[in-house]
Design a protein around this nucleic acid. Structure first.
Length: 298
DNA sequence: AAACTAGTCAACCGCTAGTCA
DNA sequence: GTGACTAGCGGTTGACTAGTT
């Protein structure tokens, strides 16, 4: 079968950027006749363009319901989540973001999000952490030890600000549960959070209300309690392995939210200058020691 | 001020799936 | 069932712009 070409170059059809006059012609035609019939539209509308070009111009630029301007944090989070679900199915992703076109989302992904994910050690294709060889655990112990190691890290670092016994108890319960596995999603979300989180803190570790790149809404930055809530629930992704009850217990036990968020920010930024050795809070001391031995042996 | 480089994004291209005669 | 046609999708290109040397 021989397909008839959509755009016949010999007819002198125009290519390239659209002029305001062309836009006006297309708009007025579509306002009068509605969408469809793209093949015959250019001639009827008095345009020297191919139908495909007209459809694209309408779909990506002239449609009245198109939302223009910067992507919001919410939209960006949606794109990442939907991309994890659909892959490069831009139209499917676009359906989840009213007013945004697949083309715009695709461009934004390729020019902004993808780079940031890579920078934060996330594979933009698999949405999993890019783990360096030195960080890889022996295969046979991988799941258990990664879980324990990670949870211990969290516990050790944050245990200073949160009630030790509360966190210890939660972690112990989670870790002995057969259904609990280390979630790459959690690690992924933590890494994603790195950039915005670092930008919302100034050099002294205080919340910077002037930050333009925040994971949180402006109101949450100005409101410590709301900020804390947003941080826990939206950014860090703790909700993936901590349930409502855990959250309540942790929040109740947290003495100073500001100090907690500072500490958390340092952790996310990978700032190891202020590491303080604390007694492991994990109840199963034997496993912790085993991991430490492994880590020390490289 | 000019040349160069990198980033952005609108538009294009090739292809596929669905529809209809 | 077949072929022509349309709409839509995803990858790629290239014009434009801003920043850097």
């Amino acid at each position: 079968m021989v397909r008839t070409p959509c755009c016949k170059a010999e007819l002198g059809l125009k290519k390239g950027a659209w002029t305001p006059e062309e836009d006006q012609k297309l708009l007025s035609y579509l306002n009068r006749h509605g969408e469809g019939g793209w093949r015959t539209l250019p001639e009827k509308a008095g345009l020297k363009r191919c139908g495909k070009s007209c459809r694209l111009r309408w779909a990506n630029y002239l449609r009245p319901d198109i939302k223009r301007g910067e992507f919001t944090e919410d939209e960006e989070c949606s794109i990442i989540s939907l991309h994890a679900l659909h892959g490069n199915k831009w139209s499917a992703i676009a359906r989840g973001l009213p007013g945004r076109t697949d083309n715009e989302i695709k461009n934004y992904w390729n020019t902004h999000i993808k780079k940031r994910l890579i920078k934060n050690g996330i594979d933009p294709v698999t949405h999993k952490g890019i783990v360096s060889k030195s960080e890889q655990l022996p295969e046979k112990q991988n799941v258990t030890q990664t879980t324990t190691r990670f949870l211990n890290r969290v516990a050790n670092r944050f245990g200073k600000r949160i009630n030790h016994s509360v966190l210890s108890e939660i972690i112990a319960n989670k870790s002995t549960s057969s259904s609990f596995t280390p979630t790459s999603n959690l690690l992924f979300q933590m890494a994603v959070a790195t950039t915005p989180v670092s930008s919302v803190f100034d050099v002294d570790g205080n919340v910077n209300p002037m930050s333009s790149s925040s994971t949180f809404s402006d109101c949450s930055v100005n409101d410590p309690q709301m900020y804390f809530d947003s941080f826990i629930e939206d950014t860090i992704g703790f909700s993936k392995f901590l349930n409502d009850e855990d959250f309540m217990a942790l929040e109740d036990s947290c003495v100073e939210n500001n100090l907690f968020t500072e500490e958390l920010a340092r952790f996310l930024q990978g700032d190891e200058t202020d590491v303080v050795d604390v007694t492991p809070v994990y109840e199963r001391q034997d496993i912790f020691e085993e991991i430490e031995t492994w880590c020390n042996n490289g």
